[in-house]
Amino acid sequence: MDSNTPKKQGGSLGESQSNRGASWAEKTFLAICYAALGLPLLLLVVLIVDVVIDGWPRLNWAFLTNYPSRKPEMAGILPALVGSAYLMLLTAAIAIPLGVGAAIYLEEYTRPSRITSLIELNISNLAGVPSIIYGLLGLELFVRAMQWGRSVVAGAATLALLLLPAVIMTAREALRTVPHSLREACYALGADRWQTIWRVVLPMSLPGILTGVILSLARAIGETAPLVMIGALTYVAFLPNSLKSPFTALPIQIFNWVSRPQAGFHTNAAAGIIVLLALMLALNGAAIWLRVRLQRRMDW
């Protein structure tokens, strides 16, 4: 093994090898590799710059506080912003207890059996189901069967089911990071299983769980297809005032504007996208900040 390869596996056996005496074939190959990595990242930059150039002139206080309008220059995203906020809070309120509960069950409360492996297989399969299929489920189950209508709570319940696999997986990972010795110490002091989980394991794994949940929410805030299925409205001139009220959300509003032929609405869509990306960035930042902060407190 070479000195600069602390890892046990993987390539780059000798770093020196790559620089000295690399054949032309290898140099060509490396050039192709740089292009393969660079091209998508370049497109990412182009995408962001393109959106900012298109949308920046439209972005002002009125845009954030106005209701939608037939005239693109009058239209704003207030109901969409408020709708998205309601949606995220409700989604979190449903997905966190269910997801963390399932994770605790699988990690702490039971030992491997046929049931747990069935649940595990099921979760990994659910993670691969396209989001629009969740929309179909939400449409039949929440909108029709439970008669919640095309409401905020139906949208949130659908998004919560969509997030569940991700929340369960991150929560399980967080639970696994708690050292076994702590649980043993707890049992030795006479605590029962629930006391151990509630007082020791959960507080210890909280940073990991919260980070995972916030990252999942950052993804959910951009989910469009399931909400289109649920029937989130595209023209909403009021703010949601109860669980059952009709609603719109930021990605739905963007989709609506993109689908219109007038250039003015495309500008609005670009401005909406800037807001959406900023919100996602903020959530991601919050997750990182939270992890660092809570981890520091946990140090001993």
């Binding site: 699988l106 649940i119 659910l126």
Partner: peptide, 27 residues
Amino acid sequence: RERLVGVVLLVCAACSVITTLGIVLVL
């Protein structure tokens, strides 16, 4: 309480299975 907590947690875990069943059933 221990038993009750166990049941509640099992229900949480079962939710993912119910979701799958729901999708298949609806379709």
